[in-house]
Structures are given as structure tokens and as C-alpha cells.
Design a protein around this nucleic acid. Structure first.
Lengths: 166, 166
DNA sequence: CAGTATCCATAAAGATACTG
DNA sequence: CAGTATCTTTATGGATACTG
């Protein structure tokens, strides 16, 4: 028996979620749910900032790079900043925002899964601070590792309204 | 300055990665890189197993559900199993495999990001064991939380070849 | 270098109708 | 209930040419 996520309280009624609003996963997919958008984020994490480097390293055309970069800037994951090297003319660079950096767990979780189930490379995620291998995992505020069958979804308080959890 | 992932050793040469092979993120996106595939995985985590429930709860047509479910079974994230309730005829159910369950960090990381940056709902991830809020994070084998600027990618040993890390 | 503009091919997905 | 079969629209993205 493969365990699944437990829906707590009113959420148990899977067919009447409309009151809850749209699914956050769905909305996230609307922003980074294409191959090129996800790989552009990967490149940004690798330190790429220039238009041409994105296009070349992701392996997409200028048109696709342009469309995706514009969308990612509009969605707030990247910012387009002007900069100027001495003696050269003004250029633009695409730099990660906090929202963009906060998407890292998504991308590295894909990296890890692809490594385990689809790839045969020697790539590894590492914690540079101590040299140990790194991985993406689900933890709770009390620092427990949360196994799949102990993960729940519930309705909490609306952020910032000062109320106690429902 | 937003920190980025550090590429260690030969990987630093971003323009000659061909020796490393294809990117695991790219391959993962080839499997679950569509809106419907990702939402079908979400449904599987919520406990959905039947064709019609997938189609209805994800909000896609039968044709789309059929195509995506077939792909996910082929990719090994779901299995199609016959089952029979007493007095009824044989039916099929789609159940999570270990590979499917192991994709959870990807999906819940998207959930968390969407919640933080795109949504205004009261949904929360919880550790049922202790009641504390859950989140997806990057940790190393020595149990340190790995901040973005301390994450590295390097070439390790090939799995199962018994060699020490390069 | 950093794009835009066009045109074209393929993939994702809705609508609708039909089958065992 | 669990699909398949068409047909159409939209999205993704390649190829190529052009611009500041």
C-alpha cells in the first residue's frame, strides 16, 4: 500500500473544493510549466544572466527565450536590470529575485528525481559548507522528516489576519 | 546580490557540458512537464485512483486524461491494476508507484511556492504526526539546511561502481 | 549582443460524439 | 464507468531573416 496525503477537515470532500480557491500547484505550473521556462530558471541558478547565454545554454531559439524571459520577469521570478561595463554601452541582465530563488526546491527536486529514475550521470547535489550530499526533503517546523503518509493538507488561518488556526 | 548555485570542478565550464549527458531536470519535465500531468500526480497524492475522478477533479477531458495517464504509467509513476468489488465487474485503478511517490517533493514545493507568491488561500501543509506546519527544504546528509549560496553541483562516482567520489 | 518579426510544425487540450 | 475517435483551438517552440 502506497501511502497518500491526508486531507484534513472540510477538504476531505474532494468534489467541493471551489470554496478553497484555485490550486497553488496549478498556478505555479502556469508560470514555470513549460520546458523552456524551467530550464531558464536552472540557468539562472547556474549564474547565467544574459539573453544570448540563456538561449544558447537552454538550447532554444531567440524567439522562445524572449517570450519565456518576458513571462518570468512579469511573474516576478527575474528582474531585468541595466548595467554598464566601463567603455562599453549599456546592456541588460536578468537576475534572480527572491521569488525566483525560492523556486529552487522545485527545480532541485526535479533534478534529484530525474537523477534517480531517468539518468545515469555522475552529477550530485552538494552542501558546499560541509561537503555532504544534499537532497530535497519535506520537513516540519519541529524538524521531523515528514514521510508521505504523514503529510496532511488543511485549512489554516488566512495570512496576516491574526486569527488562530481553524 | 542574490546567490546562485556553485558549479564545482569541470562543470564550471558551462559551455561544454555535453560529456555530462542530458540534464535530469529536462528529462523530468519531459515526463511531468504539462499542466495536466502534474495535476494528475496531485490527484494521485490526494488518493484518487479512478479514471473518471482524475478527469473530473483535474478538470480535463477524457481524451487528455487518457493520454496523460498512459504516459505516466509508461514512465513508471503510476501502475494500472485490475480490481474487483464483490458482485461487480472488473475495473482498473491507477495507483502510485515508489517512483510516483518520490516525486512528491516536486509537487509540494510547487504547492508551497504558489501559496507564497500567487495564492491567497488558507491551505497549509501539515505534519500529521506532530501537527506542525510542513515545508519542502534542501538539506544535506549531515542535516544542515542548505541555503542557496551553499548549494553546489559536482561530479560524483557513478552509482554502483564502487569507486570513491571524484 | 540583444532582441523582434514571420512563418511553420508539433503538442496540449477542449468539445463532442460514440463504444464495451 | 472507462475509455476511444474526431475535430478544432491554443500554446510551445523551431527556422530564418531582420534591427538597434
Amino acid at each position: 500500500m502506497i501511502p497518500v496525503v491526508t486531507l484534513v477537515g472540510p477538504l476531505k470532500d474532494r468534489d467541493s473544493w471551489s470554496a478553497v480557491g484555485h490550486c497553488p500547484i496549478e498556478k505555479t505550473m502556469a508560470v514555470v510549466g513549460t520546458k523552456s521556462a524551467m530550464l531558464i530558471m536552472r540557468e539562472a541558478y547556474y549564474g547565467t544572466t544574459r539573453f544570448d547565454d540563456f538561449a544558447q545554454r537552454v538550447g532554444i531559439t531567440n524567439a522562445a527565450a524572449s517570450a519565456r524571459l518576458t513571462e518570468l520577469v512579469d511573474a516576478g521570478l527575474l528582474t531585468k536590470r541595466p548595467y554598464r561595463e566601463p567603455g562599453k554601452r549599456t546592456r541588460h541582465e536578468y537576475v534572480l529575485t527572491q521569488a525566483g530563488t525560492d523556486l529552487m526546491p522545485v527545480v532541485w527536486a526535479m533534478f534529484e528525481w530525474g537523477l534517480r529514475y531517468l539518468e545515469d550521470t555522475r552529477l550530485r547535489l552538494t552542501h558546499l559548507g560541509c561537503g555532504a550530499e544534499a537532497r530535497v526533503e519535506i520537513r516540519c517546523a519541529d524538524d521531523h522528516v515528514v514521510p508521505p503518509d504523514e503529510l496532511g493538507i488543511k485549512l489554516g488561518r488566512r495570512r496576516g489576519d491574526g486569527m488562530v488556526p481553524a
